[in-house]
Computed example of a mutant assay.
Amino acid sequence: MNDPFTSPTPRNTATTSTGDDALRHRLHASVAASPDLLAYLDSLTSTAVEALSSPGQEVFCGVTLIRARKATTVASSSDRARRMDEVQYKFGDGPCLTAAQEEREIYISDIEDLAATSKYRAAMEDHGVHSVLATPILLPATSYSALNLYSTEPQAFTAAARRLARTFATHASGPLKLALTVADLADTGADLQAAMESRRTVDTAVGFIMSQNNCTRDQAIATLRQTASTRRITLRDLAESIVTKATNATDVTDRHLS
């Protein structure tokens, strides 16, 4: 997409004050209260809507999270916000993706300022959205995130509103880093558990082959690997098949003997 997005702020900057303490505490507390990363992101969008909406001026909020070797994660404050975000993912480009990946604020004060031929403009107009603000949430290494704000009114995000969005994004950065660390540890634990289960399955299959063929462990492993290669399936899948068949055969034998 070649639309001329404006970006008055190259990086996310904000000053803190005593009045921000409650928001900072709430964002940190929601990490502990959320069962997983997506739940935390959902909580983040809800808090953003409360903090950034004003009387007579409701905003719709989404959060984009991009991690290396992980699917892009999206959380939305409402179905309407979700549909707005989906427009960008459909095109593979847009304010929130640019803000996240380039770590700079993107503000479209009026959708009508975009080229008349812009597909993004047409899609936003179809949904009744007239202004978009995407503010990066800075993260370390290969993770990127952005707060995506939409309004049905043009010129909806004043300079003060954009400062508030940057402050919110700054406060959200630390808790989101913590939530990512917790999620990565959970993923590592799940991967280790899966690896252990796979190892146990292969060991059981090797034992069945040794018993059936009266061979050594090394010979059984070699047979298992050769068969998996010939059939073009993974070692674990073949092992599971062997264990299942052997277990079923044992069950039949036991029933006949009982």
Rank of each mutant, 00 (worst) to 15 (best):
A195L: 07
T253L: 15
S54D: 03
A205M: 06
Q88Y: 05
Y144G: 14
A239Y: 05
A183W: 08
R69T: 00
A159D: 12
S145V: 00
D42R: 06
H256G: 12
K177V: 00
Q219W: 02
M210S: 08
P140A: 14
C96F: 06
C215W: 05
P35I: 13
A81Y: 04
D203H: 03
N248T: 07
R225A: 14
H171W: 15
S54I: 00
D3G: 08
V202T: 10
V182R: 07
S241Q: 14
E103A: 15
D21P: 00
L65Y: 02
N12H: 13
S17L: 01
D36P: 01
T73L: 15
K70D: 04
E50S: 15
T98F: 10
A220M: 05
V132A: 06
E86G: 12
D21C: 09
S77Q: 08
A100I: 06
A14V: 02
F60K: 07
D36G: 03
F5P: 04
D21Q: 12
A122G: 02
A159G: 09
G92Y: 07
A115Y: 14
H127T: 15
L238N: 03
F91W: 05
R163K: 07
S229D: 10
K90M: 08
T72C: 01
T64V: 04
T47H: 11
T216Q: 15
I108G: 02
Q88T: 01
K177I: 00
T216H: 13
S30D: 04
R200F: 03
A146M: 13
E103K: 15
A194R: 12
F91M: 08
C96M: 09
S241P: 08
T135I: 07
S30P: 00
T201M: 13
R163D: 05
D191E: 14
M1N: 11
T18K: 09
E50D: 14
E105Y: 13
I108F: 02
